[in-house]
Design a protein around this nucleic acid. Structure first.
Length: 477
DNA sequence: TCCGGAAGTG
DNA sequence: CACTTCCGGA
């Protein structure tokens, strides 16, 4: 109690965190803990959160190479982390130790020579979180990676039509019932199916038909604390499968029962609640539906934006403190209705499989000035990121009221929350033609498929297309 | 600064 | 398991 660890009791919304303004990731992205209410955010996740919040740009920000970020204010980051974890005595030394702990996990690595500079290994995120992608079939994912020495990716099966369909449970009828695919020779397997890309604008980059659901965050089997508005419940059998792809027993839900991804669904097809999270079209705020319809809880009309390139996340204005934030912190973060942080998954996933898809304002509006950054050819381009858990909301308590004080003082120095209507903070990339594209390391050594468009420009068009789809969808419904 | 071992925690 | 804490070493 000493520590303002509010924990789920206070923070858990009546609906899945997925579309809760203050929470960045979908509820299913949170690893279950022994105690029901205990969810611990992971440091990398937290870092990502900070990274996407403009208001923390002065503290930590993307900089340099893709996935590279600089902790501009180590103490502050540590402090924030400490707040989140209810560890008042957290400091950069400890934080950095935790960061180092990620080295082995290949989630992060240090950018040598650059002070306080680390780099995310996004591709691993993708790999791990896209268990259903047939790595062996995807030219995009066969690339060597410095971590696994080019070993083939996880033995995941390709996305099957069934999978995709279940992945998009809310697709218009016209897009379902097999229309998503054009069955070739009646072959049931992936080999016999051709995904109708036109149905998935974000998938039609010309890339191979194999793709993974754009979810970065894998679902965790866990009893659903809520009902999913759109009828999809990731916790239900057949809903999802995380990380178990490789070992799915025969007869398991996979692949015939692919696991729909609420994230994807919401962003691409579902009218809500995600649609309400999508950034307003350039033409303006999407009228009215700010609550995302019936289940809309995203009252603040949070925006979800998919970054211009894989790995880019966009939690837009999410609340960084889900567990232990002090009132101040919380209010600050929530005051204007924050966005959901689902962009990461989408960005990564789409980008990975499609050469980059971006949605939302992030896709087209990032000012060039934000996209600069020291270009540097990282010799050890990343590869896998073993993200196995996305949790949040520390339930720890630990007492200590220390930081309440320091926070108070420091907060004042923090940049005021800007209009920040959006997005952000992604590693500079869209504007870095010379910068190694994140996908690069994932792509085969040989030139990408001719159909694969340049890494960046397509993103925009896809964004647009996505928007159109979105718009149509909303109109439709 | 940064690193990584080691022990401890929940 | 994912850190946290402490620490000696470079």
């Amino acid at each position: 109690m000493d520590c303002n660890c509010v924990s789920d009791l206070l923070l858990t919304p009546p609906v899945p965190a997925l579309w809760t303004p203050g929470i960045a990731f979908p509820d299913w992205a949170y690893k279950p803990e022994s105690s029901p209410g205990s969810r611990q955010i992971q440091l990398w996740h937290f870092i990502l959160e900070l990274l996407q919040k403009e208001e923390y740009n002065g503290v930590i920000a993307w900089q340099g190479d893709y996935g590279e970020f600089v902790i501009k204010d180590p103490d502050e980051v540590a402090r924030l982390w400490g707040i989140r974890k209810c560890k008042p005595h957290m400091n950069y030394d400890k934080l950095s130790r935790a960061l180092r702990y990620y080295y082995n996990k290949r989630i992060l690595h240090k950018t040598k020579g650059k002070r306080f500079t680390y780099k995310f290994n996004f591709s691993k995120v993708v790999l791990v979180n896209y268990p259903l992608l047939d790595m062996a079939s995807s030219p995009f994912l066969l690339a060597q990676n410095h971590f696994n020495s080019g070993s083939a990716a996880p033995d995941c099966s390709p996305v099957t039509p069934e999978a995709l369909q279940s992945l998009f449970p809310r697709l218009p009828e016209s897009a379902r019932g097999g229309s998503l695919f054009e069955r070739a020779g009646g072959l049931p397997g992936p080999e016999g199916d051709k995904l109708r890309l036109d149905t998935f604008p974000f998938l039609s980059s010309g890339a191979p038909c194999y793709s993974k659901p754009p979810s970065l965050l894998g679902p965790y089997p866990r009893n659903p604390p809520f009902d999913y508005p759109w009828g999809f419940n990731p916790y239900l059998p057949g809903a999802f499968s995380l990380n178990n792809c490789p070992k799915l027993p025969s007869g398991s839900l996979y692949p015939s029962h692919f696991y729909p991804n609420p994230l994807q669904s919401g962003l691409t097809q579902l009218p809500h609640p995600f649609s309400s999270l999508l950034p307003p079209s350039d033409s303006g705020e999407r009228g009215g539906g700010q609550t995302g319809g019936a289940n809309g809880t995203a009252a603040g009309a949070p925006r979800l934006c998919i970054p211009p390139y894989p790995g880019a996340l966009s939690l837009s204005r999410t609340d960084l403190g889900n567990g232990c934030l002090g009132e101040r912190e919380r209010g600050e973060a929530n005051s204007q209705g924050s966005g959901l942080g689902l962009g990461l998954g989408l960005g990564l996933g789409l980008g990975l499989g499609l050469g980059g898809v971006s949605l939302g304002s992030a896709g087209g509006r990032q000012s060039p000035s934000e996209r600069r950054g020291g270009l540097k050819q990282d010799p050890e381009s990343d590869s896998e990121l073993e993200i196995t858990d996305l949790s949040d909301c520390s339930s720890e308590n630990e007492n200590e009221a220390d930081f309440a004080v320091s926070k108070e003082t420091r907060l004042s120095s923090r940049p005021p929350i800007p209009e920040a209507k959006t997005t952000v903070a992604l590693p500079p990339l869209s504007s870095l033609p010379g910068s190694p594209h994140p996908l690069k390391s994932l792509l085969p050594g040989t030139p990408p498929p001719p159909s694969l468009p340049p890494p960046l420009s397509p993103s925009l068009s896809l964004v647009e297309r996505h928007r159109e789809t979105e718009t149509l969808k909303s109109t439709h419904s």
